[in-house]
């Protein structure tokens, strides 16, 4: 049983958006001169010369920020239905959402106190 309506615009948008990179790359392939030499194969053409390899160890701070971001991303997804259905839910749901946010504020305070939000 299919009841999928209202996605025609989404499908059209998806098709147009996925054809944009194909068209751009094909057009540049048709327009550019056929040979480029070794200069064209550098990472940033007519930019800075890259030093060393790309396989270096990154700082663990990036990982920390990504972890904190995951937590608050999930929180946003949980809170969005509450915000949309806010008019139909009433006071009790408001208190329950406050409890939810309060527990996550504890997490935020913990991360803040531990210095996970600083780039030091």
């Amino acid at each position: 049983m299919f009841h999928l309506s209202g996605y025609e615009y989404f499908l059209g948008f998806l098709l147009i958006a996925s054809s944009v990179p194909i068209l751009a790359l094909t057009a540049s392939k048709l327009l550019r001169p056929p040979t480029g030499g070794p200069e064209r194969r550098t990472t940033y053409e007519s930019g800075m010369e890259p030093l060393g390899g790309a396989w270096i160890q990154f700082n663990i701070r990036y990982y920390m920020f990504a972890l904190v971001f995951v937590v608050f991303d999930v929180e946003t997804v949980f809170l969005y239905p509450w915000a949309v259905a806010f008019n139909q839910l009433g006071l009790l749901a408001f208190v329950e959402a406050l409890i939810f946010i309060g527990i996550l504020v504890v997490a935020l305070v913990y991360a803040w106190r531990k210095g996970a939000l600083e780039w030091s």
């Binding site: 972890l67 904190v68 937590v71 949980f78 527990i103 996550l104 997490a107 913990y110 991360a111």
Partner: peptide
């Protein structure tokens, strides 16, 4: 879920 997120954050830190 909020308690789970709190635990995940504390453990990750």
């Amino acid at each position: 879920a909020s308690v789970l997120l709190l635990m995940a954050m504390v453990g990750a830190i």
